[in-house]
Amino acid sequence: MSITAALRRYEEVNDEIQQVLLTKQKAVVHEVNGQRYLGCALDAGKTLEIHGTAGNDLACYLNGGKIILYGNGQDALGNTMGGGEIIVHGHTGDALGYGMRDGQIYIRDNVCCRGGIHMKEFRAMKPVLVIGENAGSFLGEYMSGGTIVLLGLHLKRGQKLFGSHCASGMHGGKIFVRGTFPKEHLSPNIKVVSLSAEDQKELEKYVKNYCRYFHEDYESIMKKTFKKLIPATARPYANMYISN
C-alpha cells in the first residue's frame, strides 16, 4: 500500500500510515518532504518504508518496528527508541538515537552532533548504532550502555572520524572505531583499548549487517584495525559532592 506525503501535514500522513498498518504489515510512503514523527512508536512486526527526506523525530519511541529510509534523516532520529531497527540510506542530523535503550540503527553515511547521546542498556536490551562514514562532535555523550560502531568509510583527506568532545560524560557502553581517529578529540575520561575476541565477534555481526544493507565489501572494511573506546571509570562524578 503506497502513501504519498508530498506537502501534506505530518498528522495526516501518520494517520494514514496507521490506518494501513492496522491491516497490513508494511506501509510505504513516497515523496516525503521533512514530515515529522513518521513511524512514531511503531510496534514490533510492522515495517515502514520511506522515500524522500524524513523530518525530525523519525521513529521516536520506536517500539520494535522496522523503518527503512531511502533518503536522508533530520534531527533526533530514533529519539528515545525502545526497540526495533532503522536503516537509513543516507545521512542524518543532530541527536541521533537520543536515549535509545534497545534496537539497532544503521546509517549509511555520516551523522551530525551528539549521535548516540545518552544511549543506555538494560538487561537483555542492548542498543546498537552503526555509522558508515563519520560523526560530528559530542558523539556518545553521557552514553551509559550499548554499542556505537564508527566505520569511517569514504573519508576525504582532512575529514576526521569524529568531532570534538567525543564521549563526554560517557559512563558505560562502548564505541568501536575503525582506522585512525583524532585522539585529541577524546574526552578525558575515555580509554582506548584493543578489541577482545568477544568484541570482535560482536563487531563482525554489525559490520556484516551494514554490508548487507548498503552493499559494501565486508573483507575490505575488516582489513583496517578497530579500536574500542570505553570509559576509564563507570562513576566519573562519584566524588564530586560533599554533603552539607
Binding site: 534531527d75 541527536a95 537520543y98 551528539r114 547521546i117 538494560f122 551509559s144 560524560g169 559512563h171
Partner: peptide
C-alpha cells in the same frame, strides 16, 4: 543497570 549513575543532564539535547 544496577549500581550505575542515573544522570539527567540540565538540558534536553533535543
Amino acid at each position: 543497570p544496577e549500581g550505575s549513575d542515573a544522570i539527567s543532564p540540565a538540558p534536553h539535547h533535543d
